[in-house]
Nucleic acid binder design. Sequence first.
DNA 1: AAAGTTAGTGTAATCGTAACACTTAGGCAA
DNA 2: TTGCCTAAGTGTTACGATTACACTAACTTT
Lengths: 238, 238
Amino acid sequence: MTLQKSNSLNPHVSVDCVIFGFDKGQLQVLLIKRGGKDEALALPGDLIRDDENLDEAASRVLYELTGLRNIFLEQLRAFGDPERLEANSDIQWLNSVREEPQARVITIAYYAIVKPGKLHPKPSSFASEVKWMPVLELPMLAFDHSVILSQALHHLAASLKKEPLLAFEMLPRKFTLRQIQKLYEEVLNKNIDKRNFRKKLQTAGMLIPLDEKEVGVSHKPARFYQFDKKKIKTKGWL
Amino acid sequence: MTLQKSNSLNPHVSVDCVIFGFDKGQLQVLLIKRGGKDEALALPGDLIRDDENLDEAASRVLYELTGLRNIFLEQLRAFGDPERLEANSDIQWLNSVREEPQARVITIAYYAIVKPGKLHPKPSSFASEVKWMPVLELPMLAFDHSVILSQALHHLAASLKKEPLLAFEMLPRKFTLRQIQKLYEEVLNKNIDKRNFRKKLQTAGMLIPLDEKEVGVSHKPARFYQFDKKKIKTKGWL
DNA sequence: AAAGTTAGTGTAATCGTAACACTTAGGCAA
DNA sequence: TTGCCTAAGTGTTACGATTACACTAACTTT
């Protein structure tokens, strides 16, 4: 091992966040454009700062982008092919100014869940454009972000089967049984039997029925429910 | 964000490998000492080189340590508190020579599985001492390696429930039904009913019975089996 | 008032899981 | 050689979980 070499080209390390939301019956992901109009969409992310750990860096990216704190956020995994393109245009600028060889970028991917309505995307110092995109009809993303996103999606589906908590993170505070079923159908990409699904929800006993119903719908109005946080069951319930 | 700063202190990035093996009825992990006798045990690891991706770096560490290739190897997750101590003594030396502030080390943890008997630990350029230790009776490890190991162990148990393949990676080519059951009992840390366990193995149909039995044991000799790689079932079988 | 839409509800068949005990084959010691 | 020790090997029953399946109720629109 050449010490000199391994030090001189220490990689950049960034976090990238796959931010999921469920709205209009579709699973959505929050994407940005950093610079010009015709740039590819990308996952929001930033270089890690010296004084923050990985989780804090991801939290910060989320906060700077959305203004939200206390969001569900977990590390997915690290990505770092040496051929990975630069994940931050600042770095490109920096390197071109210095005429140094470009250091690679290793990124730690996180996935996050935001309740619908909590977030009204707007441009920031990070991103000239910010918007929700339905995961099922995505264009190509910048860098290796398509790979990251598809792994995050896979992971989300696997987690949803084990942890009902995640489902409730994706729904508004009050929701109907139909909404939660649609969420599962969308993410797991299969149809679920209504009666069996409700039976299992009842057995789990994590729902508080409210004395409130849908209004203005042209069919029998559904009852609203709330999630009972005291009764989380986390293992294998679907 | 200060560009200058974020670049000048680019973190070091390393891989650390949690190498599991199952021998003498116990789950073991391969640990090293880098330097002196009274140093704490540590997970084997190294800085990532410029020309390799993360998986390759982990593979290389494994190869340099054990001489083995084509080992089961998967990324666990990244660890990177800013307070993380140096994970490579070369770096400390380097930094002290240059009188630079120490850059933090972010590490990508991997876990690997090695069949018993494949590996006869011996010192290398990495490590002055290399040895298998039973995971249930470990001393404190260097840096944050105890945390990494415990997460790897947890992950291993979770994976074993889903992927029988992992079990077969841990066993020799020929094994008895008792061996595979003991493996599960050790990793999942609970007793398993013999008849039910065998029934499930049969249902899964991944075992090829051999015309060979234990010899020299002071009880009814058990039949040997082989794993049928063509019939892997990977989802939820235990 | 009729048609359209989703809410809401129970039962029977099937499958998987869990609990449980005795006979057999070999080594070893008296 | 006999008896004892040890682990191998083998089925059945009870229980719980999962699946499949169809009608009535409430509200809106035309």
